[in-house]
Design a protein around this nucleic acid. Structure first.
Lengths: 339, 339
DNA sequence: CCTCCCTTGTGAAACGTTTCATGAAATGAC
DNA sequence: GTCATTTCATGAAACGTTTCACAAGGGAGG
């Protein structure tokens, strides 16, 4: 309603030129304090609100960065979001969160929109990593992009990742230690790099020492895990994801299969809810917030460097957290035992 | 890099005026198909990307809506996000997600930015509802706003909510039915309307029939719940939130207190993880996605109606889901009993 | 052949900023 | 009192769109 059309009105009210108002806004030290005050007053009296479109148009690019996640519903990613927001806030940059929902089409559309907005930079965990993707185009046209939770052989961009191969190996070693001979990997689709790497990791660890099968899932959700549980026929399960693991746990329990006595489970991500699960879940922990923080730092650095910039690849080490779901059946809870 | 400066370049390449290019983009039926094709070709050859800032500047407002949530980390809100995204997508509108983190300052800054961007509309669960807040100003200046998960006495805006008083009552009745005489409400801060209403609801149900105490928390997180558990001295707990409930469950377990034998717990929201908890959690269920969907529909409707618009208030009914955490101590799991 | 209308395409104005070259006034040095 | 320098303020151009009044050309109807 009272959108009093900007700077011009303010200028008139304060009795100065629009250039001066702009200066008050952007380089206040250039304007005499009395004038400055007059302008400031006019601004508050009029309830003037800067028009960002005009600003951006002039500047040629936005002042925000985007974070495109695979699944907002996954606590892993919400923690990444928090990390990114924290880092961005320190630099006075705003993060807009986009959700691809593991859907390449939506990711594509998001990138279209973001490019139209001349977004300053993009943090993304891409749905897949085909070489001629929409993403490549974006990079090619000059938008800084940092890959999140995904290593990158290519050197056309920065990346922040956790060593998923190692994560898979850790899980594998652990399950072997527990004496398991038939292990199943649950997760999918294989188009997601994390899924492939985690699978490759455990395959490597297990090779020749135990039997490894796979139950593929259409996505990485609790529901998918629950469904997958029906097909599990092994003494240990390694899930691509804690959500899947939680689902598998529910599914197995429903089938009357006890965890960990009959089947052990190891998840991935160590989300907050893993520890609170019906059977506290063993899981491969990733530094989730750190991931977001570092990615943002890298992106801002690249934006800063503008011209020449050395792309960097940061890799974090995962850590296996062992809880009841994969421990040897123990009797260490007297309260329960004694009743 | 190859940001070939827009429409003008395209026009030159296709040998037409810029007005024509604009027409191809916005009202293709107005331009002869041969010309149209020529322009389209030029666009792809040049890799032209529309400049949204310029578009917005001309239009006077953005074509996106914002969703400001209290806590991205809370599965309740991520489900609301999903609902909102789904509804928005059907209308070709993009949703930008902002996280206030239950921090009034951040909420304020987000609204500043959003207003500068002339955001088309805002869905928000405000941190608090003081009458002269930043939010009021936004509404006053003409931005359509829909309150999410919060009823509104005022008629200056639409709202979508779940009847939290009823939710509290349901929890209260249930716990009374189970014979509890000393009940504690855990949650805070009281500045959050939901917290107040849920508390008021159970207080109403319990009044005169049992003793009700309160353990306040600084926010609605698992950690806060865990900490609050130390102060609990009652036979039943009603938590403002499933996150808090999960925390309380952990904290009590750590103290060697059994749930539900020693203390019953009822949560709120019925997030996906509630059912998967160490002790499956009783919880007051809200139609989370529905909330997001409806809010978005209302907002789009208001944007459509533009001039005269009748503000509406949609209220959903919550539903109590009873699980183990508040059942009478049962022995219905033979597998466990028998070992 | 003249008129009228319809289809296509044009050019310029406007949206609200920022920036920059320029100018005016004030200050200081001599 | 003059000149050089510094401090402030100005006006116009530019950013890339969309929109709108208008013009040019082509048919159809008379």
């Amino acid at each position: 309603m009272s959108n009093t059309t900007g700077i011009k009105e303010v200028a008139r009210r304060a009795g100065v030129s629009i250039g001066t108002v702009s200066n008050v806004l952007n380089r206040p030290e250039l304007v005499a304090s009395s004038t400055r005050q007059r302008v400031l007053d006019a601004i508050t009296e009029l309830g003037y609100v800067r028009n960002d479109s005009a600003r951006q148009l002039r500047a040629g690019h936005s002042r925000q960065i985007a974070l495109v996640v695979l699944d907002v519903t996954n606590p892993f990613f919400t923690d990444v979001v928090r990390g990114a927001e924290a880092a961005a806030e320190e630099h006075g940059v705003m993060v807009v969160v986009c959700n691809s929902g593991e859907d390449a089409g939506r990711e594509h559309r998001h990138l279209d929109l973001l490019e139209e907005q001349r977004i300053r930079g993009v943090l993304i965990t891409p749905v897949d990593e085909s070489p001629n993707s929409r993403l490549e185009l974006l990079i090619q046209r000059g938008t800084p992009v940092v890959l999140v939770d995904r290593g990158s052989g290519r050197h056309s961009r920065c990346s922040v990742a956790v060593d998923d191969l190692l994560g898979g190996r850790l899980a594998g070693e652990h399950l072997l230690d527990q004496g398991h001979q038939r292990i199943t990997f649950v997760g999918g689709p294989a188009s997601i790099t994390q899924v492939r790497d985690r699978h490759a990791g455990i395959a490597e660890a297990v090779a020749g020492r135990a039997e490894l099968s796979v139950v593929p899932t259409p996505n990485l959700t609790v529901a998918a895990g629950r469904a997958a549980a029906a097909e599990i026929d092994a003494t240990a399960v390694f899930c691509a994801n804690d959500l899947v693991a939680l689902g598998v746990l529910q599914g197995l329990t429903q089938r009357g299969i006890r965890v960990p006595q009959d089947v052990a489970i190891v998840g991935y991500d160590d989300i907050e809810f893993a520890a609170a699960a019906a059977v506290p879940l063993s899981s491969v922990r990733q530094p989730r917030e750190q991931l977001g923080r570092t990615a943002t730092a890298l992106l801002l650095e690249e934006i800063e460097d503008d011209g020449r910039h050395e792309h960097r690849h940061v890799v974090f080490q995962p850590e296996l957290i062992v809880r009841e779901s994969s421990g040897r059946p123990r009797t260490r809870r007297p309260a329960r035992k004694g009743r």
